[in-house]
Design a protein around this nucleic acid. Structure first.
Lengths: 138, 138
DNA sequence: ATCCTACAATAGACTTTGTCTAAGTCAATC
DNA sequence: GATTGACTTAGACAAAGTCTATTGTAGGAT
């Protein structure tokens, strides 16, 4: 059922009830949960799962490159299972709702040499902010 | 001596020793300190200043629009006094050194309507990551 | 110059987010 | 089905930040 689970099994990842539940909770599009939210949802399916396990599992998924860490708000890190297709984020300034977006162009090319300070630049993150339809209406 | 201090006085900001010290610590280019770093430097000049005051003062400077909050790493917020000229950030993935940069183009225009999900988009932050010359040499 | 008062600063408890450790449990293999 | 090393657990700990009740003070009024 889950792409993520299948990929993990294919990599020989040792499967446990806890890890399966975490992977299942993360499955889907435009999913950007904090560690505590993942834990809260995991507890519904597996009441004895501990916070430490959720943190460990999320950390491993990030190391494996199957999940991305996103820092869109300044509170908790969020975890994004959409690690296959590169994308950026659009965040509601009021309610925090997050969408994955795919802007045109290549921001990396827009940084002139004179603005690189000798850095070897390898990566760009773009975060758009605004109001979602719900919050704009209110 | 300080642009920031003068602007604040001009706005009728009530001046106290603590607020002056915080504003002085923040003055400069490519300054991106955490709240605790600001506190550490403020304590050198004014030993009895408290953490809460530093947080309060930073919060007010942000509300006044004189200082920006930056979330380049996922630990503590950083405070950037360069709030007048819009800019983005270039971060060393290893040591965390941060530079202010001014890319060409307008990333806002690069987000097509079909990727806006009905949001009213008002703002973009771009974070470049790579290795600074020091860390690349090591 | 002194007094007042509203605003600012303080200490420290509290919250949130995340990490670590030592001991117990279990998935995969033999 | 026994073994074993990786996984999980509870709870202590740490870092970053917020809140509150109390004390202090900048700056206007007198």
């Amino acid at each position: 059922m889950s792409d993520l689970l299948e990929r993990l099994r294919g990599r020989g990842w040792r499967m446990t009830a806890q890890r399966r539940v975490v992977a299942e909770v993360l499955n889907g599009d435009h999913v950007h949960l904090t560690a505590d939210e993942v834990h809260a949802r995991a507890v519904v399916r597996l009441p004895e799962i501990s916070r430490a396990t959720v943190y460990n599992t999320l950390g491993e998924l990030v190391s494996l490159g199957e999940v991305l860490e996103v820092a869109t708000d300044k509170r908790a890190k969020r975890y994004d299972p959409n690690a296959h297709r590169p994308h950026h984020h659009l965040v509601c300034a009021q309610c925090g709702a997050i969408k994955d977006v795919h802007p045109d162009g290549n921001p990396l090319a827009d940084l002139p040499d004179s603005e690189r300070f000798g850095y070897t630049v390898s990566n760009v993150e773009v975060t758009y902010r605004g109001l979602c339809p719900n919050c704009a209406a209110a």
